[in-house]
Amino acid sequence: MIRYIIRRLLQTVLVLFLVMTLVFVILRVVGDPAKMMVTPDSSYEDLQNIRRILGLDQPIWKQYLNYLSDVLRGDFGSSYYFERPVIDLLKERLPATLKLGFISLAVSLPLALLFGVISAIKRNSLLDNAVTTFVVMGRSIPTFWFASLMVLIFSVQLKWLPASGYGETRQLIMPVIAMSSGMGASVTRLTRSAMLDVMRQDYITTARAKGAAETKVIIKHGLHNALLAVVTFVALQIGYMFAGSVVVESIFAIPGIGRLIVTAIKGYDFPLIQASTLIFALIFSIINCVADLCYTLIDPRISFRINK
């Protein structure tokens, strides 16, 4: 088991390294931040000067080696735009994104599993139809429009909730709903179909025939097996949910990394783009890692194979 975990961690490091390289290469090949920093009447020398100060005049492999050695020493450079160390900016902005993400997760995941299971068991009931409708809508509504629509209804028309901002609990309600609806819909859908598959299996009939209580059949025999299909998928969805913070934070003016990344990309702020995309990739990878470990815990066949 330990060996499996170590191998999995090494894989994660490799993927993060590749992401880092990919972002670095894309930025160097196609963008030029120096052009964003000069005024129209600056001379070519000014441009070259800025490039030299930013270290962009060096050959790309040299820049890359410098970047790598800096990152390994924990130095992510300074933001061009904010003129502050990137690491400080991330420290300031990360809590808001994580808070929003984890609240959304805590709200939507249990509900999604619960409704997925209920709607599979009570197939074609009123509740199932309602759930299915929600799921279908959830997949087709763009988050940014859904968020705007909520603002229109709850802030403009009904005046119940503040349209944007961060700090009060009331201000978190709409962002959390916007952030979690997409993931909630996909997870509900998959849980439902996984449960429908599982509940048709022979071992469920056997469990019932033995006289096991129906709740026990559903939870222990049904859900436990359905979860196998759900776990890996959920991990991906959680990742996408975090990615959604880009849109949600922009709409509700939340000072998180998602909004930071949009500013950084629009301003060709290389150090900031590199660091903040790396943070997102890290969040993504941690979630996937945890999911894989959960998977081995849920599925005894896999942990058996690993331990052997």
Binding site: V15, L22, I26, V29, V30, A243, T277, F284
Partner: peptide, 19 residues
Amino acid sequence: DVMLAFPFIFLAMLLVAAL
């Protein structure tokens, strides 16, 4: 794996900004 470890919207944003 890399593409999955990296929400594609960021990649898309990066590329559009660059191109």
